[in-house]
Amino acid sequence: MRALLAAVLLLGAVACGADAGTADGAWKPRGDVRMIVPFAAGGGSDLAGRALAAALEKAQPGLTVTVENRDGGSGAVGYSGLLGKKGNGNYLIATENAILSLPLSGQVSFTREDFTPVAKLAEDGGILVVKQDSPYKSCTDVVNAAKSARVTVGMSGAYGVDNVIFTMIEQKTGVTFQRVPFESGGELVPAVLGGQIQVALLNPGEVVGQLRSGDLRGLCVTTDERYTYPEFSSLATAKEQGIDVSYVQFRGILAAGGLDERERAYWEAAAKGVARTAEFQKWLKDNYLRQAELYGDDFRTYLGQVDTALAPVLKKPS
């Protein structure tokens, strides 16, 4: 029975191509809304997409939001899929920093301008971690060690947040890290636990179990201020340790490009309802996220600012 349901849900994805309705006055999506997750099931983006979809349904009774994983190309496949839905108000994407880093890589045909910013809802920070028997006690130790010896760091992908932060540290301090490429943050935890790499940068939710058990040690956080969650409040920021770097991953919602005023207004209002749902708050707490809301044009401005900051970091040395 449940299996049947799963099959129907998936086959439903084939059949559904519902268009946005255009009733008088306020716009409302007609039929199912699709929330694209540009990464595979199980990762941070997937959790975000599913939580935000559930919260949207709760905030807008009668709305059905179906999550669809379209992973590949570090997120490029999912965003390209949404690119083809221009003007269709029934399509959303669970967005994060890849929307900025992918266009900067020069390998994709879209930019942030091709989509409609709906809301930024949360921020996910990074923790530099080492194995418990590592000699490094702080991020300063890591930087100092890298001045004279080879320090291996994990990289969850060429456009990942960890690569951005390690590059920022390199540019500020003049050191060079030896990057070992992996395919996801999930692969980094065993690599640093097994001593295959010396340092990794991970989201709090990814390492809280290993930090509590003492298998991993946190060195510093890359957020602007310390965490308020008790599990991480003792960790100093990189800035406190004299490394002037801060960068977070934002989590939010984009809609397809080319929407009219009423469609944009609907989604902004819906997103504002999201932050008040229990589903949303539970997702924040479970994943140690920081609530950070920006809607519509404010979100657009934020994206522009981060883009400007990111450009010199991701520019390939010629």
């Binding site: 190309g73 490029a76 496949v77 390998q107 994709v108 456009y159």
Partner: peptide
């Protein structure tokens, strides 16, 4: 290693 596409002929779907 480098994040550069190979044999994708500019096609997004082939990136992965």
């Amino acid at each position: 290693a480098t994040g550069l596409p190979r044999y994708t002929f500019g096609d997004v779907d082939l990136l992965s």
